[in-house]
């Protein structure tokens, strides 16, 4: 039940991000300066935190989506849906720890100085 709510919420979040993301990418047709200026905001610590959140949303939606697909198409899917949910949570935690440094490393260095 909670996984279904989370799947919904993350799906909507990703959709709204994608809408804005296509708009910001379209600035490459305006001028290199306009594009670089907007992308510069992506490199600030606060937005880096948002990017980490986006990664969290996508990884959960993707992993849980694969679980939903397995439940629908795999003959034993329904029987193992609970175990698969724990697998989703486990893989998600591992990947989120792995993403810490690549996504937040630069921001951390900027905020805490190094």
């Amino acid at each position: 039940m909670w996984s279904w709510v989370a799947h919904r919420v993350t799906g909507v979040l990703i959709f709204f991000f994608l809408f804005v993301h296509v708009l910001d990418t379209a600035l490459v047709r305006v001028s290199p300066e306009a594009y670089d200026e907007v992308v510069a905001t992506y490199k600030t610590p606060l937005v880096a935190l948002l990017e980490y959140g986006l990664v969290a949303a996508i990884l959960f939606h993707a992993l849980n989506g694969l679980r939903v697909i397995a439940v629908d198409f795999w003959s034993k899917g329904t029987r193992y849906q609970k175990q698969m949910l724990w697998a989703v949570v486990g893989v998600w935690v591992v990947l989120m720890i792995g993403a810490l440094y690549p996504v937040l490393g630069h921001a951390a260095a900027e905020v805490f100085g190094s």
Binding site: P32, Y35, D36, V39, Y42, K43, A48, E51, V55, A99, P102, V103, G105, H106
Partner: peptide, 11 residues
């Protein structure tokens, strides 16, 4: 976000 300096390289 990961390869080649992450988001910092984008432009």
């Amino acid at each position: 976000l990961v390869l080649d300096g992450g988001v910092q390289k984008i432009g």
